[in-house]
């Protein structure tokens, strides 16, 4: 029973990782930029979730506002920060991204204060007991959202013209452009979706912890990088599986290796072990 509970808790954590890392892998796939500031957008999602829910009483509204605002900000980051740097070597954009992330954290601290914020009446707190296993409604919702996001993305990419254009822009950008695909529009869309997913993750994490802090993104900022490397850079399905696998491994690791290894160390030990055997990541192609 404990074994199953730990597995379930691992899936919850893995779903959060997935929501954050999928956005990151989308950006990497399209631009070959390691978008560290993505974690700053995740934090903003958390703040908006708490602020709007506390003001309006509606989590659904908060979710929509968070997606719209954070998604737009993601597009703005692309336009103002990455686009001018695309011709430069990739580390230039990476450093810009790290700088942006630190600035965002301190900006949140200045705007929202250092104490963090909580939902006054956190929604989705009911506990569901099934076959002796218990889960909070918020945890269940997080898993459902992660699943829906992946299925939605797969449908968008595989079943629509827009998806076709998107995939073409990722694999052969010049060719796609010469066939009349508006690559810039695709990039905006890409950033909107990626950032929107981070916003959703932020709202849900804020709910699970009932706390948003300016530094909430600091762990995801680097752990998500490990996950997208594990998943085979730019590979959405691989990223999902890597995120879930990492969540579950961390869950068992916290209990059985906790005295030896930090939870965060477990992620990187796993990363090193995998890369030694499969340098292209768990699900990447060589």
């Amino acid at each position: 029973m404990l074994f199953l509970e730990l597995f379930l808790q691992g899936l919850v954590q893995g779903s959060i990782y997935a929501l954050i890392a999928i956005g990151l892998t989308l950006v990497y796939g399209l631009l070959r930029v390691l978008h560290v500031a993505h974690a700053g957008l995740f934090t903003l999602g958390g703040y908006l979730g708490v602020l709007v829910t506390n003001a309006s009483g509606s989590l659904a509204l908060a979710m929509l506002v968070a997606i719209a605002v954070v998604g737009s900000l993601g597009m703005a980051i692309y336009r103002l920060c990455y686009q001018p740097l695309l011709e430069k070597p990739p580390f230039v954009a990476l450093i810009a991204s790290i700088g942006l992330f630190i600035a965002m954290e301190e900006l949140y601290r200045l705007i929202f204060g250092p104490y963090g914020m909580s939902y006054v009446q956190p929604p989705l707190q009911d506990v569901i007991v099934f076959a002796g296993l218990s889960l909070k409604l918020a945890e269940l919702t997080t898993m459902a959202i992660a699943l829906a996001a992946v299925v939605g993305l797969a449908l968008l990419a595989g079943r629509t013209r827009l998806g076709l254009a998107w995939r073409a822009s990722v694999t052969v950008p010049q060719m796609a452009a010469s066939f009349g695909i508006d690559i810039v529009r695709i990039r905006y869309l890409n950033f909107f979706i990626a950032s929107g997913l981070a916003a959703v993750a932020g709202v849900m994490v804020a709910l699970l912890n009932n706390l948003v802090e300016p530094t909430m993104g600091s762990v995801p900022s680097y752990k998500a990088l490990a996950i997208i490397v594990l998943g085979g850079l730019g590979n959405v399905r691989g990223t999902l599986l890597a995120a879930l696998a990492l969540g579950v491994i961390e869950s068992y690791g916290t209990i059985y290796l906790g005295q030896l290894l930090d939870r965060d160390a477990i992620a990187f030990a796993f990363l090193i072990a995998v890369l030694m055997v499969r340098p292209q990541g768990l699900f990447g192609k060589r």
Partner: peptide, 21 residues
Amino acid sequence: NEYEYSIKDRQFGPIVAKVKS
């Protein structure tokens, strides 16, 4: 029993499950 966590942790699902048992 004793469990350890890092200052960055906010999600204690696995520890909570184990404490329960």
